[in-house]
Amino acid sequence: MMGDFKIQCLLNKSAGLFKCLLCMMLLLSGMQVYSQTQTLTVISNEKGAPTELKLDELKSIFKGEKQRWRDGNKITIAMMKTNTPVGAYTCKKIYDMNGDEVKKFWLALVFQGKADGPQFFSSITELESFVVDNPGAIGIIDPSQSSANTHVVLVDGKKTL
């Protein structure tokens, strides 16, 4: 009888441990799923950017390869800081670099006198305000945190990257 009780306790503990492990695995995979489904939206000022861009064109713009839009407005790039989740994902998606590499890339380009660096922001709200207030500005944000007033640029026909 004591033996049966001990076995029952062991089984209960094992079940508890198994449930705990299962919860942890679900939690971790949930986090992974979140970062894999992180989406980005490109917003712009009403003046400057076209309504649609190809992904290659967007990358070229964010690498400082274009100085002006077709309408003559100067291109100003707005990004979330590279140590924010949106900023870090932008670095990966657009530059195929980590945050430190993106900062080095821009510092070198500015130091060569070849381009003006992007404006970096800590909050989506600040980034949106900057884009709305500055003709020629283009930025990348998390669409779930954006306000309804921003002008979205389609990339390869889609609202999100």
Binding site: E65, Q67, R68, A108, G113
Partner: peptide, 27 residues
Amino acid sequence: KYNYYGNHNILLGKVHTPLNYWNDTYH
């Protein structure tokens, strides 16, 4: 530097002579 059209600029002043990659890239 004066950006007069698109990706075209006029620079006036003392520059690194744009003779090779190293001098144009590393200051």
